[in-house]
Amino acid sequence: MDATVAFFYDLIPALSNLPDWLSYTIIGAVLTVGAFLFIAVFALIGIWLERKISGHMQDRLGPMEVGGWHGWAQTIADTVKLLVKEDIIPEKADKFLFKFAPFIMFTASMAAFAALPWSARFIPANLNVGLLYILSVSSLVVIGILMGGWASNNKWSLYGAMRSAAQMISYEIPVALSLIVALLLTGSMDMQEIVRGQAGGIFNWNIFGYFPLLFIAFIIYFIASLAEVNRTPFDLPEAESELVAGFMTEYSGMRWAFFMLAEYANMFVVSAISTTVFLGGWQPIAPFLDFIPGPFWFLGKALFLVLIQMWLRWTLPRLRVDQLMYTTWKVLTPFSFALILLVSFIKVL
């Protein structure tokens, strides 16, 4: 039986009495709504945290007023504001594409959550091609960005979307290549198999495989994934000092909020992929710590990487567009090819 279904039948035995299609549909619906709630809560906390971290790094306090203690309710208040705000569709826009872009963007980033392994027993969809699936659905985000940017009929949006498309497709190559390096070690695209192969403490994690080759692959993945999710120093698509807000310029209200939600969901997804593939997923740091449940380790490692992403935002300046292309095509891609050949060569020997 499928691992996900088995997990839910154990949890709620009454489910197994229903007809198969109904119980599968209920399980799927619960998982989808769960993923949505997770993204919403993660974005609420993440945005607040990012403001606080940004503030403290610049020697100011960040939001302090709303809710009392360190402005904890600031993002909740923002959400309420966005919900009751008029969302404006420009007169000259391509209305259908303009309305449809947030759907594509958000659904694509949410669908990636389906294949993230949370613990030894729990993964929303136990796909045997999990890693490939995540890579393919997360590249759908480009289509959402291009759609939104073009449909807005605004120069800033169009430039932002074009830059974004060039950037995201270019950086997809080092992302995939560095994951292939790790795949050579694990020999499976099943996310659970990848994690199981890294059992037995921190030194069995893929990041220390063939030291330092896999470590370099991890660094390449991390840099390229920053560009994939349009984070500083690769946030050219929405470079606020030159392109106003890039492809999001004409969006407002809830439609804009979905773009932001998708951005934070993507941040988590890329961190979760590097956690799963390089940092041992739900495996504990040392074998004797395995009384602490898997989701704690998984979430802890992923959030740590998200924290580094936020930290980098205030450490590195934004790259110029030609430097951006230089980094991916002339540095990251040749290096990751060399890594693949090196690792496979060592493996044959």
């Binding site: 599968y24 998982l31 659904t107 389906a114 796909l127």
Partner: peptide, 18 residues
């Protein structure tokens, strides 16, 4: 079943946005 759940992620995801 896993692919069916993925399909639901897409369909219900769209629905939630809507």
């Amino acid at each position: 079943v896993a692919f069916y759940i993925v399909l639901l992620f897409f369909l219900i995801g769209m629905l939630i946005v809507g």
